[in-house]
């Protein structure tokens, strides 16, 4: 009995230590960002701020605000569009499979694994040719297209679980392709849309390579602006940490509120579903 108790206590001790270790970066982010310029010295890094000073946030916010706006303008439409397309594709591939559709699906999936460096140079030329280079709509287009494989995969795996009998019955009743989609598939897809939506929102918000190569100055999304902020040597650590927290806040909030669905998305990324 006592050995069991000791074991149990030990288990919690280990778990709590790991949890605290995982939260160290958050502690550093919060405490450093709340310090005033006189307190962000190297030797006091771990110390608690003696008083809460929001000057770091003020400066970070004034520098990052337009870029936060860019990121919302980019992420929300791109998420919605790629989820809608993914849902339609997943519906076709799971319920209306045609000859060769499995191969085409495989060819599509390959697109989510490629290093995007391997399409970047032509992509920039293409965006310049269609006059969408250095624009938010251009980035939306890019994220919708390169988001197709993962969104299609997630919805397809989600729809495979819907019994085919339900659809067969509807077909006998004369309901067609779109009728089934609207009246049977969409109502059953709410969870699917939440999972895919959160996944795309997080990924597009956090994306850097397309953002840094496709935009300059005013059009830059938040992650590029944050990198510029921290890359310039003159910026104080409290401003950098405040900036990092501001940039992370939207996806962190989504995670805190809807973490369950984020984890489902995480697991849905493996192909077998």
């Amino acid at each position: 009995m006592t050995t069991k108790l000791v074991k149990r206590a030990l288990l919690y001790l280990v778990l709590i230590s790991f949890a605290l270790l995982f939260l160290v970066p958050i502690y550093v982010l919060l405490t450093t960002s709340l310090k005033g310029n006189n307190e962000v010295t190297l030797d006091q890094m771990w110390a608690f701020p003696s008083q809460i000073d929001l000057s770091g946030y003020k400066l970070a916010f004034s520098k990052l605000f337009p870029h936060l706006g860019n990121s919302f303008l980019l992420t929300i439409p791109a998420t919605i569009l790629s989820a809608l397309l993914g849902s339609m594709n997943g519906y076709v591939l799971s319920k209306w499979a045609f000859r060769g559709s499995n191969t085409l699906f495989g060819l599509m999936l390959f697109g989510m694994f490629i290093p995007y460096q391997s399409i970047l140079i032509p992509l920039i030329q293409f965006m310049q040719d269609i006059h969408l280079y250095n624009s938010i709509p251009g980035l939306i287009l890019i994220h919708v297209i390169y988001g197709l494989p993962i969104c299609t995969l997630m919805f397809r795996n989600f729809y495979v679980a819907i019994p085919t009998e339900v659809l067969e019955a509807a077909k006998i009743d004369g309901t067609g392709f779109f009728g089934i989609y609207r009246h049977i598939i969409v109502p059953l897809s709410i969870t699917g849309f939440v999972v895919v939506g959160i996944w795309q929102f997080t990924n597009i918000w956090n994306e850097f390579l397309f953002a840094v190569t496709m935009t300059t100055q005013k059009q830059q999304p938040i992650m590029v602006a944050l990198q510029n902020l921290s890359g310039s040597q003159i910026v104080q650590w409290n401003v950098q940490m405040a900036g990092a927290l501001l940039a992370a806040l939207p996806t962190l909030l989504v995670y805190i509120l809807l973490g369950r669905y984020f984890i489902r998305g995480l697991l849905a990324g493996s192909i077998k579903g």
């Binding site: 550093v28 996806t251 962190l252």
Partner: peptide, 18 residues
């Protein structure tokens, strides 16, 4: 244990650099 997955590599880089 999972929350860092919701963060950008850029944020991770900035914080761990510090």
């Amino acid at each position: 244990f999972i929350f860092p997955m919701a963060l950008s590599f850029i944020v991770t880089g900035v914080v761990w650099q510090w």
